[in-house]
C-alpha cells in the first residue's frame, strides 16, 4: 500500500504509452441498451478488504472494452448461438432436450445471478456447470459435458445471457456458509513456491502492472469469458487453475470441491456487479 502513490506516478511515466491502456472510468452499455454496473460499493462482507468492487472489464484496453459493447462484435456470442441449438436438441436415453422441461431459455432469467447456490435435495453447493450436468445425467440420461469443455462454457454463457445486467447476488449464509468460509480461506492462502494468494494480486494490487498484465480484481461476474488469447469461452475454474499454476503450485481440478468453494467465495466478492457473460478479455 505504501508504494501506491509512488507507483501511480511511475505508471503515468512508464505505462501510459503502452497498448492503449484501460480506461478505468469508462461505463459499459451493451447493444446501446443493457447498462452494466461495472463499479459499485463492495458488499458488506468485504468491509475492510475492498472499498469498491470493479468488473475486470474496467481494466482492459479500449479495444477489448469495445468488443464487449455490441453483440455483433463479441466473438463469445457465436458460442451462445451454438448453445441455443443444443438447448433445443434431444439427447440421451430419455429423448429429451433442455427445452422439453424448461421451455424457452428465457425461463433461465435470474439463474446465473444466484449461482453457485445451495441445492437442498442434493445437500451441496452447486455451480451452474454442476446443475447443467445433473440435468443431463439424471433428467436426460445423457453424457455429462466435460467441466471446462466448449459445450459446457457455451451452455453456461447461454444461460448467463438471460440474466445480463442483473446484479450478482449469491447467498453466503445458511447452509452455504461453510463452503463460503472454505473458499475465503483459499482466497487468502499463499500457494506454491512463489507464495502468492489471490488477495496478493487481486486485492492488494489491482490497478498495478505485474509484468505486462494490468491486474484486475479477479471478479467472475463476466464468466464465462471469451479470451482473445485462446479464442474460446473460458470458465472460472480454468482461470483459477491458471492463476494457481502461475504461483508454482500444485493446482486443483476444475469441478473439484475446492474450486466450487472458491467459486462461491469469489462470486460473492462481486455481489452487486452485473452479470456480464459472455464478457471479452485479453
Amino acid at each position: 500500500m505504501k508504494f501506491k502513490a509512488m507507483t501511480a506516478v511511475a505508471a503515468l511515466l512508464v505505462a501510459a504509452p503502452m497498448l492503449g491502456m484501460a480506461d478505468e472510468e469508462a461505463e459499459l452499455v451493451v447493444n446501446g441498451e443493457i447498462e452494466m454496473v461495472t463499479k459499485t460499493d463492495a458488499p458488506a462482507h468485504l468491509e475492510g478488504a475492498l472499498p469498491e468492487i470493479m468488473s475486470g472489464w474496467r481494466f482492459r484496453s479500449d479495444e477489448t472494452q469495445q468488443t464487449q459493447m455490441d453483440d455483433f462484435d463479441n466473438p463469445g456470442m457465436i458460442f451462445v448461438d451454438q448453445a441455443q441449438a443444443a438447448w433445443d436438441t434431444a439427447e440421451g436415453s430419455e429423448g429429451k432436450s433442455c427445452a422439453s422441461c424448461h421451455n424457452d431459455v428465457e425461463s433461465m432469467e435470474g439463474v446465473r445471478a444466484v449461482y453457485p447456490k445451495w441445492n437442498e435435495e442434493a445437500g451441496e453447493v452447486r455451480t451452474l456447470a454442476m446443475q447443467i450436468n445433473d440435468c443431463r445425467e439424471n433428467q436426460m440420461g445423457a453424457e455429462p459435458y466435460k467441466y471446462t469443455g466448449n459445450e459446457m462454457t457455451a451452455m453456461e454463457a447461454l444461460i448467463s445471457v438471460q440474466s445480463r445486467g442483473m446484479p450478482v447476488n449469491v447467498a453466503i449464509d445458511g447452509p452455504a456458509q461453510s463452503t463460503w468460509e472454505q473458499g475465503k480461506e483459499m482466497y487468502y492462502t499463499r500457494y506454491g513456491q512463489l507464495e502468492l494468494s489471490c488477495a496478493n494480486c487481486h486485492e492488494d494490487n489491482y490497478g498495478n502492472m505485474i509484468r505486462a498484465d494490468h491486474l484486475s480484481q479477479g471478479q467472475i461476474n463476466g464468466f464465462p469469458v471469451y479470451r482473445l488469447k485462446n479464442t474460446k469461452l473460458n470458465g472460472s475454474h480454468a482461470r483459477f487453475k491458471g492463476c494457481i499454476r502461475d504461483t508454482r503450485a500444485e493446482t486443483f481440478s476444475p469441478g473439484s470441491p475446492e474450486f466450487v468453494a472458491l467459486e462461491l467465495y469469489v462470486a460473492s466478492r462481486g455481489n452487486g456487479l452485473s452479470v456480464e457473460a459472455p464478457s471479452v478479455r485479453n
Partner: peptide
C-alpha cells in the same frame, strides 16, 4: 510451501 508445484506445470512437486 502450501501445495508446492513442479515449476509451472501445475503438478505436485
Amino acid at each position: 510451501y502450501v501445495r508446492p508445484g513442479d515449476g509451472f506445470t501445475g503438478k505436485a512437486g
